[in-house]
Simulated assay, not measured.
Amino acid sequence: MAHIVLFHSILGLRPVEGEIAAVFEADGHTVSLPDLFGGRAADTYEAGFAQRKEVGTEAIMERAKAAVDAAPADAVLAGVSFGAALIGEFWGDRPEMKGALLYAGITEWMDPPRPGLKVSAHIAKPDPFDDEEYFADWAAQKGEADLKMHRYENCGHYFLDPSLEDYNEEAARLCLDRSRAFLKGL
C-alpha cells in the first residue's frame, strides 16, 4: 500500500480533501493531509488567493516540506490545483517516489523527467484557468515519464468538491476510480 501526501487547493484544507483521503484509506493506503494555510479556508478562488498571500510563500513551503520530509521516500505526492503545482518543488529530490496524482492542475516537470515515473493527471476540459495549448505543451514535455492524462468534460476546475459550482458527480466518481486503479498499479 502507498503512503500519499495530498496537498490541498488554493481554498485551503477543506472537507473534500478528507473525503478523498478516506477513499484511499478505505483501500488500505495511508494519507497525510498537510494544512498549508494553518487552519484557514476559503469558499471562493478569489478569497483563496488572498489568503495564500496573507499566509506567505515561506510558511507554505515550510509546511509542505515538513510533510514531504515526514513521509517515506517512496510516498506518492498528490495535489489539487495549487497543491498539484507544489509537487514540482519536491519530486526531483525523491528518486524513490512511486508516483504522482495531479488534480485540477499540473506542475513543472523535473529536469529531465524521471523515466518510468508514473503520473496520473485529472483536468477539466476546458479548464477555466489554463488553455488547451498549456496542457498539450506540458504533456509533450513528459520525456520518458509514464503519464496518463485524463480530461473531464462538462465540469468546473475543482470538479471533485461537492461544495463548489465546479462539482460534477460523474466526473468525480470516475476520477477517484481511476486514481484508485493508479494507486493499485504502483
Rank of each mutant, 00 (worst) to 15 (best):
E169P: 14
R63F: 09
P15G: 04
M149I: 00
G79V: 01
R40K: 13
A145E: 06
H8L: 13
L13W: 05
M149Y: 11
V16S: 01
A75C: 08
P15A: 05
M61Y: 06
L176E: 10
R94E: 11
G48N: 08
K142C: 09
L36T: 04
K142Q: 10
T57I: 11
V5S: 03
A70P: 10
Y103Q: 05
E17N: 11
A26R: 15
V16L: 05
V55E: 01
G105K: 07
F49I: 13
G83F: 07
K148E: 15
E19Q: 14
M97I: 13
S81N: 13
S32E: 10
P126R: 02
L11A: 05
W138F: 08
G28W: 09
L117Q: 11
Q51H: 10
D166M: 02
L13I: 03
D35V: 04
A47I: 07
R63I: 08
A21P: 08
I4H: 02
D69V: 00
L186Q: 07
T30P: 00
A100E: 07
L13R: 12
A66V: 05
E62L: 15
A136G: 01
T107S: 09
G143H: 12
G38H: 10
A140K: 13
D130N: 13
A78T: 10
P95D: 07
R114P: 13
V76G: 07
G92D: 12
F49L: 13
E58M: 04
S179A: 15
L86W: 08
M61N: 08
K142E: 04
R114G: 09
I87S: 01
G79L: 09
G156H: 10
F24N: 01
D166I: 02
R63M: 08
H150Y: 12
G79C: 05
C175L: 09
S32G: 05
H8S: 08
E25I: 00
A47N: 14
R151N: 00
P95Q: 07
P15N: 01
L33T: 15
D74I: 12
R180S: 14
I20Q: 01
H150K: 06
E17L: 11
A26K: 14
E19K: 12
A50M: 12
R180P: 03
G92L: 12
L174E: 15
P112V: 11
R63C: 02
R151C: 00
G105S: 03
D35T: 07
L117A: 09
P112D: 04
L36A: 12
Q51G: 03
F82H: 02
H29W: 13
L176G: 07
E89C: 05
K98I: 12
Y103T: 01
V80N: 05
V55H: 03
A42K: 02
S163W: 00
H157S: 06
L117V: 07
A145W: 06
K148T: 14
I20H: 00
Q141D: 15
A47P: 15
R178Q: 13
K98A: 14
P15M: 01
M97H: 03
W138G: 03
